Amino acid sequence: MADYSSYGEPSAEWLKFANSGFLKPPPAELTLNERRDYLNESRAKLHDEIYGPFKGDIDIFNIDIPSPDGSPIQTRLYTLTRSPLNRNSPLIIHLHSGGWHLGNLKTEDAFCAYLCTLLAEKHASGYAVLHVNYRHTPEYHFPTQLDDVYTVFEYLADNAALARSMWGIDSKRIILSGTSSGAHLAVGCAILNVQRMKLSPETQADKRIKGLVLTCPPTVHPDLFPYHLVRNKETSSHVQNANEPLLGMDRTRLFWGLFLSASREEKKAAWSERITDVLISPLTSKVGVFDARLWPMTCFHVAGMDILRDEGLLFEKKLKSNGVKTRLHVYPGFPHAFNMLPQLEESKRWMVNLVEDILSIPSN
C-alpha cells in the first residue's frame, strides 16, 4: 500500500515563513461573503505586488460568453500585442483556486499576465491565457461552475475562425490549468470532453483538450477517501494534514458542502449518489472515461503537507495505470495551494515547472 507521509514533514522554508506572522486569518466577525471579499482583496494585492506591474506587450480583453441559462460568463483574455493575423497562439484556460467560493477577475490579473509574458519568452507564437470567472458558491452550486467552464471551452472550440481573427488564438490547441477547485473543474471539463467524444467521435474529434495541469487537485469527496489504498488511515494526508493552516478538514468540508449544496442529514440518498458521481470523485469512480486514447496528457503538482496530497498522487497513479501520459512534481513540506504565496522560493520552483509542463504538452 502507498505511504506518502514522509512528504508531510514541514520544510525549513515553510517553518520560517509560518513563524513570520504573515499568515493572518480574516477578522472573526466577518460574514461568509465579507470573508470572501477580504480574502479576494488580499490575494489580488499580494499578486499585484509580486507579479506586477505587467511586463512586455500584453493585450487584455474582457469577453462575456453566454451560458445555457442566459447568464454571461465573465472571462478575461491575455495575449501578446501583435496583429492576430501574425500569430496563432495555443490557449491556456486558467481556472482559479478558492474552494469554488473565492477568486474573481482581479485576483488573477497579475498572475495571468505574468504567465503570458513568461511563455512568450519560450515559444515563438506565445500562449494566450484565458481566465474563466466561473460563478461561485454560495450563490451557485454544482454543476454551475463546471457548466460555465465547459461552455467557455466549447464556445471557443466551436468558433475557431472567430478566435483566430479576433484574438490570434488557435482554439484547437487548448490546455486547462488550475489549482485546487480550479484543478477539480479542469478534470471535470476533461471528463465531459471525453464523454462527448465517445458519443459523437466524428464531430468531436477536433475539439479534444490537449492537456491538463493540475495543482493540489481534489479528486474525491472526503466521505469516499480510499483508505484501503494507503498504508493506514493515520498516515494518510486526510489525517496527517487535517489541521494544516491553509486547508484543514473543517474548511475542506465547508467548501464541499457549499459546492454540493446538500447535507447528508437532509438528503442521505441524494447525497450518497451525488458524491460518487465521476464529476465529483473521479479517483474512486468506475466510469470508464480515463482512456489513454482520449484522455489528455496530465501534469500534477502535489504539496506534501496538503490534506489533498494522497488523492492527487493516487489519481496520477490511476491515470498512469490506464496508459495516460503524466508528469509529476511533488513539493515536500509545503501546504495546500502554497503556490498562491508567490514570495516563496518553492512557489518560484512551481512556476518554472508549470511553464515546462505547458511546453511539454503535444499540440496535435
Rank of each mutant, 00 (worst) to 15 (best):
L283C: 02
S71K: 11
W14N: 10
A183E: 05
L359E: 04
S180D: 02
H221Q: 03
D3N: 14
P201K: 00
L199D: 14
E9H: 11
G304T: 13
L294Y: 13
W271L: 05
P25K: 02
I361H: 12
C299P: 02
K106L: 10
D277C: 09
D48W: 08
E139H: 07
E202P: 00
Y155Q: 07
T75G: 14
N353S: 09
M305W: 14
K172W: 03
L102P: 12
L118G: 01
L77N: 06
D109V: 10
L91K: 05
K348G: 00
R135E: 11
L224K: 08
N40P: 03
L162E: 07
C112M: 09
S89E: 06
N40W: 02
V287A: 14
E13V: 00
S281P: 14
R135S: 01
P201M: 00
N40H: 00
T81H: 12
P26E: 03
M305A: 14
N159R: 15
H96I: 05
K16M: 06
T284Y: 03
R208G: 01
E346G: 06
A160I: 15
A270V: 02
S5A: 13
I63E: 07
N243I: 01
D148K: 06
R164W: 09
R231N: 07
T137W: 12
L294C: 01
R82C: 01
V330I: 09
L39W: 13
A337S: 11
